[in-house]
Nucleic acid binder design. Structure first.
Lengths: 231, 231
DNA sequence: ACAGGAAAAATGATCGATTATTTTAAGCCC
DNA sequence: GGGCTTAAAATAATCGATCATTTTTCCTGT
């Protein structure tokens, strides 16, 4: 058995960061919710400093917000931001997918075919009755979208798409928690994949943009209604 | 005298963050340099925790890198990243400036005219002989570039352009510290401004991209030569 | 000279008591 | 009831001692 020289022990701060990040993205911790440091240190059986370190990281990533001497809150959601975010996703992912269609080879094709297949085969919910989110679906969903732009040749663009995806994930979680579910067929992801593999850039972009806009329209019924109740 | 209700006391962590951020961007702390927590806490007359918090923030922003149990280093530079970054800047700023030309009104025009003027009127160096950077120039430079895309309608895009600008700033600092200086005329920024105000989108994009590529070519002579010496 | 192991030194990370700041509650006055 | 002031309570932030991990140094054997 070979020891991986690069294998590291995870610090308490990193562990807390990862858990909080997950909970913010999946809606467990709702937008604008106060992130109380003492409460968190108790629930994570940790001192105050690792909690603060984790929160600083989340804040710098835009998943939480921090104000000096006023601590941390989960980043709020808003309709204007949703619209902005959706527009930015359309713009940036368009570059990513066009460049990938231009530059991507057989390996990229196989990546997106597999990612699309896995996404379609992964149930969106653990239990259909109460809409318990399946974490595997969230992973497969992001993997699919990132795979579409993965051959664009720019890590900066890939990172930007990833950020935008995560920001949108918070909105998807808001909708899910509010009981809104998507009724469109799974063909959507498949259609995008086909257009990409067939090198039809205009069609892929159009389908992808429509996909983002549809998500936004679905979500904004909740943000419009629900955001008014948020502090 | 009216007290600003929103005026906050700055925390030690925020103060250290701001200072370290400035020093990383202006090249005072070179790429890959170790950020030793005890040394920093002494030089900032602070405890260890605020230093760690500041470093976590910088790390999440990509200005430093962190590995569990191995502390923090200034983010390294590399030729591949410079190329990627430059390409990403071209792509993203193209969207930003095209949308701004489409949507921006008289106010936007005035913003970029003023920003361009101020940039041209601000000396690049405090002392020409030893190339002491003028911090005012750095501010005016970023203000100019951000103003070009400021009417695009998307805070997410504006934020992305800002991130990319800062990342590029580290490369400009590497070049400056290495004694490389730009010899092109200041007309460049003026020409971009004119094209934008005249609503010549294609020309503005072409000039802007050429501007970014010229910066990259200048910088990469140093990164190519100097990066080999970095750990 | 090189490799491996052990010990020492350096550094990373955490703890929880303490200090600093903000928020809330209570009391008073108009 | 509203506004203001003060005190108490809650929470944010910091400190530096201590524990944990990594790196460096030293020694031994081949």
């Amino acid at each position: 058995m070979i020891n991986d020289v690069n294998e590291q022990k995870q610090t308490m701060a990193s562990s807390i960061y990862a858990q909080l990040r997950k909970e913010i993205l999946d809606g467990t911790r709702p937008p604008s919710a106060k992130l109380n440091i003492r409460d968190l240190s108790e629930s994570f059986s940790s001192g105050l400093s690792p909690v603060r370190e984790a929160l600083n990281r989340l804040s710098s990533e835009g998943l939480a917000q921090q104000a000096d001497n006023r601590g941390f809150n989960v980043q709020p959601v808003s309709l204007p931001e949703l619209i902005d975010l959706t527009q930015a996703r359309c713009w940036v992912n368009e570059i990513g997918i066009r460049e990938s269609i231009k530059k991507g080879g057989a390996e990229w094709e196989e990546t997106i075919i597999l990612a699309s297949h896995r996404l379609i085969r992964t149930p969106r919910f653990l239990a259909e009755e109460d809409k318990l989110a399946n974490p595997d679906w969230a992973v497969a969903h992001k993997t699919f979208h990132q795979s579409l732009i993965s051959a664009c040749g720019s890590n900066w663009m890939i990172d930007t798409c990833s950020r935008l995806f995560d920001a949108a994930e918070r909105y998807r979680s808001v909708a899910r928690v509010a009981g809104i579910s998507r009724t469109d067929p799974s063909d959507e992801h498949q259609d995008i994949t086909s257009a990409a593999v067939d090198r039809k850039a205009d069609e892929a972009v159009e389908l992808l943009n429509a996909h983002f806009q549809r998500t936004a329209q679905l979500v904004q019924t909740v943000v419009d209604d629900g955001a008014g109740d948020l502090p």
